[in-house]
């Protein structure tokens, strides 16, 4: 464990807790893409299949349980909670996210480190995580504005992946044989997807005005 990875995990934890808190407190999920949340639930489900078979540390298992629990809770709130579900703008959140999953699955079947059931699904979860934010970014473009909690959510999510890139660089220089191109490239693509959002987020923060994403 290094400080970059810890910072990344804490930022990631903060992002899901900020979102869960928002939805639980104000009983609204306006501006949040259910598609992205469903994709994240699938990412965690396919990423943590080994939670019962391989034990890394208490921290690792605890965090996996928190991420699984929070992502499925968010999906549950948005789909089934009597009050929250009414605030979900389903006609705006129309990104066909199943079309994201198929290419990720095909790519995982083609490019992976080992051709085993767990490894292919784990690789699938990496590719899917890289693109899972797309429905949310498309929704923000459509709704043209962003309330600050959703903005914080995306900002923290991007920050978590940015810290992980620093973690990979650190591990590359400190651990022999630590070379994982698939993880690195997927993580880099994911962070780049956030880059333009960060740019507009920073502009709005600098000019101290409401975040307006270009059409």
């Amino acid at each position: 464990m290094n400080i970059f990875r810890l910072a990344g995990d804490m930022t990631h934890l903060a992002s899901v807790l900020v979102l869960l808190l928002k939805i639980h407190t104000i009983k609204s999920c306006a501006g949040v893409s259910l598609k992205t949340q469903e994709l994240y639930a699938i990412v965690f489900a396919t990423r943590y299949l080994d939670i019962l078979t391989s034990f890394v540390s208490i921290y690792n298992t605890l965090m996996k349980l928190i991420f699984l629990g929070s992502s499925f809770s968010i999906v549950w709130y948005m789909k089934y909670h009597k009050t929250v579900r009414r605030t979900y703008d389903r006609d705006q959140d129309t990104f066909r996210h199943w079309f994201l999953m198929l290419p990720c699955l095909l790519l995982a079947l083609l490019i992976h480190e080992k051709f085993t059931f767990f490894e292919v699904l784990w690789t699938f979860s990496l590719y899917l995580e890289a693109v899972a934010i797309l429905p949310q970014l498309v929704l923000l473009q459509r709704t043209r504005n962003i309330d600050n909690l959703t903005g914080q959510y995306i900002f923290l999510l991007g920050g978590y992946r940015g810290f992980y890139i620093l973690n990979w660089i650190y591990r590359y220089f400190t651990e022999p044989h630590y070379v994982h191109w698939i993880t690195w490239i997927a993580g880099l693509v994911q962070t780049l997807l956030y880059a333009d959002f960060f740019y507009y987020y920073f502009l709005s923060w600098k000019n101290n005005k409401k975040l307006q994403l270009p059409a």
Partner: peptide, 10 residues
């Protein structure tokens, strides 16, 4: 030892 893995990462 066995090659390092990213499976210890979340």
């Amino acid at each position: 030892g066995e090659e390092s893995s990213t499976k210890d990462e979340l």
